Computed example of a mutant assay.
Amino acid sequence: MRLLCHCGTLRQAARAITSLYDAQLAKHGIRITQYTILATLGRAEGVSTSQLADDLLMDQTTLSRTLATLRTKGLVEADVGDDLRMRFWSLTPNGSELLRACESDWRAAQDELYRRAGKRHVKALDAQIYDLASKLIED
């Protein structure tokens, strides 16, 4: 069903794309939301919860719940900062290993999305959505 609401339409697309990635990552026991956090930490370890939330445009409460799940699975760890309320997150060796193991399946999801929607179209849409998000968070 085509919606009149731009937000609703974007959420429909996000759910459809999420299911494509989740299907590829299922054999590893993680979802794309968890993979994205692992991949982000794989590029910049020792990231505070608030910085990670800002980078991912995520609510801190939702991020904290997901990080707790990843910590329970032994994939991430947190160091306490000078302020005992601050946590600085990084991958554990198991988290790094899982991230490497998932890469080919993540790439397969990317390729499937390109195949279904057209690589040029997906890349253009990605750039437009990123620009839109950047403009909205500036305010």
Rank of each mutant, 00 (worst) to 15 (best):
G29K: 06
I30Q: 00
I32T: 08
T33R: 15
Q34A: 03
Q34S: 04
Q34C: 02
Y35A: 07
T36K: 10
A39L: 13
T40S: 13
A44Q: 15
A44I: 07
E45H: 03
G46A: 06
G46P: 11
S48N: 02
S48Q: 01
S48R: 01
Q51A: 12
D54T: 00
D54R: 00
L56T: 12
M58D: 00
M58R: 05
D59Y: 11
L63K: 09
L63F: 09
R65P: 09
A68G: 05
T69C: 04
T69L: 03
T69G: 01
R71C: 01
T72V: 04
G74A: 08
L75S: 02
V76C: 01
E77C: 10
D79I: 09
D79G: 12
D79H: 11
G81Y: 06
G81E: 10
D82F: 13
D83I: 08
L84K: 11
R85D: 10
M86H: 00
F88A: 00
W89M: 00
W89T: 01
L91Q: 02
G95Q: 01
L98R: 11
L98T: 10
L98C: 13
L99A: 06
A101S: 14
C102G: 08
C102V: 13
W106G: 12
A109H: 06
D111M: 13
E112Y: 01
E112M: 09
R115D: 12
R116H: 03
R116D: 03
K119D: 02
R120E: 15
H121G: 04
V122K: 05
V122R: 04
K123M: 03
L125E: 05
